[in-house]
Amino acid sequence: MTEFADLHGGPLPLLLPNAWDVASALAFVAAGYPAIGTTSLGVAASHGVPDGGRATRGANLALARDLARLPVPVSVDCEDGYADDPGGVAALVSELGTLGVAGVNLEDSAAGRLVDPSVLADKVAAVKEAAPEVFVNARVDTYWFHQDETVEATLARATAYVAAGANGIFVPGLAEPDAILAITAALSVPVNLLPVPGRSLADLAALGVRRVSTGSLPYRAALAVAVEAAAAVRDGSTLPASVPYHDLQADLTAYADGA
């Protein structure tokens, strides 16, 4: 965990691109990113199921096995841990740690609703006891689902997770500068956000943010560009930028040969 944790201490927040398969992860590694995350939406959508609902436990484990071979730390989005029982969540994260996964995200919501903060706190405590080497990024969904959407409620949840052993706090949907600053100033662990429109990494660093995840944005952007590519062929307009076939084939061949 030390190497991955150290990436949160640079002059700018760690920019963590989120992959949904081997090819997207290889592309991010080739672009020079020092660590890779996964996106639960991207994994779910690529398997034809909605995000959440614990539908992708097996798919995420399989992807983690593949991505753990990459030369950079990997953090896996585990939704709510795919279980109510803290022991079951701890067993999953222990397995991921054995594979070489450096970090996980665990969220405090289920079926689009916040759960009692003790639920995630108990899971975090169990995970840290079973797999202390794994960086646990505890996700607070107050702003994401617009429930208890205040600094005070968010900090109450976040401090409970930090007390349970969380190594970082993720607040997706948080975007207002004063709220960001209040939350980062009150917490002793790195705070992670999704991209904030109009705010650079330097802007977010000034607000105390230590990590920015792309989330499902690259996956959704890839879908949009795929449709644009088809339209460009139809209309005879300029084709969008793409990774050359032979470059991707070479990367996949090198990856396969390293198995």
Rank of each mutant, 00 (worst) to 15 (best):
E3G: 07
G10H: 11
G10C: 05
P13H: 04
P17A: 09
N18L: 10
A19W: 01
A19I: 04
A23D: 06
L26T: 03
A30R: 15
A31V: 10
I36L: 11
G37A: 14
L41S: 09
S46K: 00
G48R: 10
T56L: 02
R69K: 07
V72W: 05
E79N: 06
E79L: 04
D80N: 14
A83V: 10
V89Y: 03
A90N: 07
V93R: 00
G100L: 12
G103A: 10
L106H: 01
R113H: 10
R113G: 04
D116K: 14
P117T: 04
A121G: 10
A126E: 04
V127T: 09
A130R: 14
N137A: 12
V140S: 01
V151H: 12
V151Y: 10
T154E: 04
R157E: 00
A160N: 09
A166W: 00
N167C: 12
G173V: 06
A175E: 15
A182V: 07
S188V: 13
V191L: 09
L194F: 15
P195Q: 09
G198H: 08
S200A: 11
A206I: 07
V212K: 02
G215H: 13
G215Q: 11
G215K: 08
R220L: 15
L223N: 09
A226N: 07
E228W: 11
A232Q: 04
R234P: 02
S237V: 12
P244K: 10
Y245T: 13
Q249S: 14
Q249G: 05
L252S: 10
T253I: 10
D257E: 11
